[in-house]
Amino acid sequence: MTEQSLSLIDEAALLDVAARLATVVQKTPSTKPLTIYLVGELGAGKTTFSRGFIQAFGHQGKVKSPTYTLVESYDLPLWQIHHFDLYRLADPEELEFMGIRDYFDSQTIILAEWPQRGKGVLPEPDLKIVIDYADEGRAMTLSALTTRGRELLDKL
């Protein structure tokens, strides 16, 4: 497993890392979906990271937290990004009922907050990003869990 640890002094630094990762993803084409797990306490910055990532792909509108809807989808020119927030998920089987497998296409990126609540149903991650509180800022650890994840992290 390849890993990078970063200290982020503020929200702008978090958004910058998200945008840089989005740029690397766009420059590293693949025929397989990309799955990124976002792990951290409430308010740590998972949705902020997702906003920066999605906007770096060219989305102009708001990026809403999918806390109540479970998923918000963004149809972009070359990609489709599905932002999941599984905080309120009672059972992973609920994902099967909502047709989660329909979200996994070749030009798809899955951003999954609280992925442990979808264990066994969500695809295994290419990247796992842990965001923790650290004094006034945040500590971020990016872990590559697949060959594709390592390729992306090496280019970041």
Rank of each mutant, 00 (worst) to 15 (best):
A90S: 13
Q80W: 05
G58F: 03
T48R: 15
G52D: 01
H83L: 10
G61N: 12
E124Y: 10
V121E: 00
F104M: 11
I109P: 00
L152V: 05
T67H: 14
T2V: 13
K128D: 02
T141W: 09
L78H: 10
S143K: 14
Q80F: 07
V121M: 04
L34N: 10
S30I: 03
F57T: 00
I110W: 06
T108W: 07
E94H: 13
L78M: 09
T31W: 05
Y103D: 01
R51I: 06
K27F: 03
R101W: 07
A90Y: 11
L111R: 02
D132E: 11
L156N: 03
M98E: 05
I36R: 13
D102T: 07
V71A: 03
R138L: 00
S50G: 15
D85M: 09
L156D: 03
T69M: 01
E93T: 12
Y68H: 12
D91Q: 15
L8N: 00
E3T: 11
L34P: 02
L8W: 07
R150Y: 06
D85G: 11
E151T: 08
G118C: 02
A18M: 01
D135M: 14
F97C: 15
S143D: 01
I36S: 04
P29N: 06
K119M: 13
F57L: 01
Q107W: 04
V17A: 12
L122W: 00
D16I: 13
S7C: 12
P77R: 09
T147P: 04
A56H: 06
K155G: 05
V17I: 15
Y103I: 00
P92L: 09
K128P: 03
V25Y: 01
I109Q: 04
A12T: 15
H83K: 14
A112T: 09
Q4Y: 14
F49I: 09
T108Q: 12
L70R: 11
Y74K: 10
P123V: 10
R51G: 08
F84M: 03
I109M: 07
